[in-house]
């Protein structure tokens, strides 16, 4: 589904991504694990085009998307849910969903507000509430729902569990599993290993802008030394 090959990216003079490579098969859920500042968020931003990669190849379902405009990348089928959610605070829930709407893709049934309300029942009760008057958890659900409205082939989730109450995190786990079952490929950036174990089947560890380990998440779970080496603070 997604192939990333020796990706480099800079913030000003800082070299953040230093030749990052990985790939995700269709229908998989890959989690990108790493410490603060390892380059997780920058990886996702480079994929969607908000950070312009300096070099490297990115293909989505066979289509080259490296260096394209964000809107073109989104239309090619990449969905992006940012870390800080970036809900439109002046717009209602329904209007937020409308901004995310794109034409259906590949003959699959398109996501509609009704289908999304079934996935996130909390949102159904607040259709006309402005985004600015929602809790953090509700905003996170809306952010995911808004991106699904674009019927993405692959969705990028930047730390969806961050700052959420345990009950809401539980809910998020169910929603992400349901999303995967409906055929959306998932790339997740996370610091929370427990959350990652609950939703992902593949894992990649990122350190100083490079992938240092790539494999099934069960292998990571079975190897405490590996976790210790790359993920301990």
């Amino acid at each position: 589904m997604l192939h990333v090959d020796t990706l480099h990216a800079h913030y000003g003079r800082a070299h953040i991504l230093q030749g990052l490579s990985f790939h995700i098969a269709p229908g998989c859920a890959l989690v990108l694990l790493g410490r603060n500042g390892a380059g997780k968020s920058t990886t996702l931003k480079s994929l969607i085009g908000l950070v312009r990669p300096t070099s490297g190849r990115i293909t989505l379902a066979g289509q080259d998307i490296a260096g394209h405009e964000p809107h073109a990348i989104a239309r090619a089928g990449l969905g992006y849910v940012p870390e800080d959610r970036r809900i439109f605070t002046e717009l209602t829930v329904m209007e937020n969903l409308e901004v995310g709407r794109l034409p259906p893709r590949d003959g699959r049934p398109p996501w509609t507000p009704e289908r999304l309300f079934a996935l996130f029942p909390n949102l159904a009760a607040m259709r006309n509430r402005p985004g600015g008057r929602m809790s953090g958890g509700e905003q996170q659900m809306l952010a995911i729902a808004r991106t699904l409205m674009g019927n993405p082939r692959l969705i990028l989730l930047d730390e969806p569990s961050e700052g959420l109450a345990p009950v809401i995190v539980e809910h998020m786990v169910h929603a992400i599993r349901a999303m995967r079952d409906s055929g959306v490929t998932i790339l997740l950036a996370e610091q929370n290993l427990h959350f990652a174990l609950a939703v992902a089947d593949q894992a990649a560890i990122i350190e100083k802008g490079r992938i240092t380990w790539h494999g099934p998440i069960a292998a990571l779970q079975a190897d405490p030394a590996l976790r210790e080496a790359w993920l301990a603070p």
Partner: peptide, 10 residues
């Protein structure tokens, strides 16, 4: 409100 986010949504 947020033109980059609008772009990221296509």
């Amino acid at each position: 409100e947020d033109r980059d986010m609008v772009a990221a949504l296509g």
